[in-house]
Amino acid sequence: MLLEATDSTILNSGNFTKSITSITSVLEFWEDSVNADENQSLLQIPITRTGSPLDRVGATLVVAGDSTADVIAEIPVIFEPFETFKEFTVSIVDNDTPDGPRPVTLTLADPSGGASIGQRNELIINIQDDEPAPVPPPPPEPTPTPIPELPALNLPSTSQVSLTIEPEAVEEDSGNSLVYTLTRTPDSLGVPLAVDFSVGGTAILGEDYTVSGAVRFDGDRGTAIFDQNATTTQFLITPIANDIFQLDRTIEVVLDDSGFLYIAEIGGNTATGTIIDDDPPPSPLYMTSATVVL
């Protein structure tokens, strides 16, 4: 039996920043066990990565025979940054020997790069022999064993993402925040999702307001992250109080039309918040008359 990495899924590196490096990468198999016929030739084994996609992480894929002590091979599994899905091809050797069903155990071990191993750390391949078992005469006809079909992989599909704001305006010295909420449809719930947006308006980051909750926000561009199985995510814009009389200022956020596993909702991709100045205007200056003696 041979294993070979044949496919992978890589997230767009622009969708993430170092703000989520505290989230651990979790590596695990897609399922617990599969059945394969000896003459099936090839079998696809998926390995997934959830949690933080930022770092280069890995583990060791240990292949064992009938006993877990009978190690056939140890294969390194490496996920590059933003790579979330790898698929290994198992080549099954068809022989002419009636040797019965043979289990092969695949185990994920020795995580590296700060990763951890998930609950599905072991996968058993049940290889069904396709040669009839030898029997002494008079031999009874063996009853054929049906081979179950492998379950289909339910990979995530594209979600539609919308943007709302509540409240739409706050006073500068109130201590309240503008709350921007992104909502996605359930299509991609099985994986974390990064949504990029542009930032406009008249307010200036660091001078008029601060931001919390967004993984990236530089005053012109930003990124918000949906956790796995989460349908909403938020970030907050909080005004910076001062004693200077100013005009009201705005922060306009516009979602990118599309990205990895999402498209923005038409007509629901923009939200604008307003910082209301609550400082009194300065007192007018009065010029008194003066006498000049030459």
Rank of each mutant, 00 (worst) to 15 (best):
T6E: 05
S8T: 07
T9G: 09
N12K: 08
T17Q: 05
K18R: 07
T21G: 11
T21D: 15
I23F: 12
T24N: 12
S25D: 03
V26H: 04
E28P: 03
E31A: 11
D32H: 09
A36R: 11
S41F: 10
S41L: 13
S41G: 01
Q44D: 14
Q44F: 13
P46S: 04
I47N: 05
R49I: 11
V57S: 04
G58Q: 09
L61I: 05
D66E: 06
D66V: 05
A69K: 08
D70Y: 00
E74W: 05
E74L: 02
I75G: 00
F82L: 09
F85T: 01
F85E: 11
V90L: 15
I92S: 10
D96W: 02
P101M: 15
P101V: 14
D110T: 12
S112Q: 12
G113H: 09
G113E: 10
G118R: 06
Q119L: 14
N121V: 04
E122N: 07
L123M: 14
I124Q: 12
I124G: 05
N126E: 10
N126T: 12
A133K: 14
P136N: 15
P140A: 15
E141D: 14
P142W: 01
T143S: 10
P144Q: 06
T145S: 10
E149N: 07
L150A: 13
L150Q: 14
L155G: 02
V161G: 00
T164V: 12
T164Q: 11
E166D: 14
E172I: 03
G175I: 06
T183H: 02
T183Y: 01
P186M: 03
D187K: 08
L189W: 02
G190R: 08
P192S: 13
P192G: 08
A194R: 05
A194N: 03
A203D: 10
A203V: 04
G206V: 00
D208T: 05
Y209T: 08
Y209S: 04
S212H: 02
V215Y: 06
D220I: 12
T223R: 13
A224C: 05
A224W: 03
D227Y: 11
D227L: 12
Q228Y: 08
T231W: 04
T232G: 06
L236H: 11
L236P: 01
I237L: 14
T238H: 06
D243E: 14
Q246W: 05
L247M: 11
L247I: 06
V253N: 12
V254F: 04
D256R: 12
G259E: 01
I263F: 11
A264W: 00
N269E: 14
T274I: 09
I276L: 15
D277M: 09
P284M: 01
P284K: 02
M287Y: 08
A290P: 00
T291W: 01
T291F: 07
V292E: 01
L294Y: 06
L294Q: 03
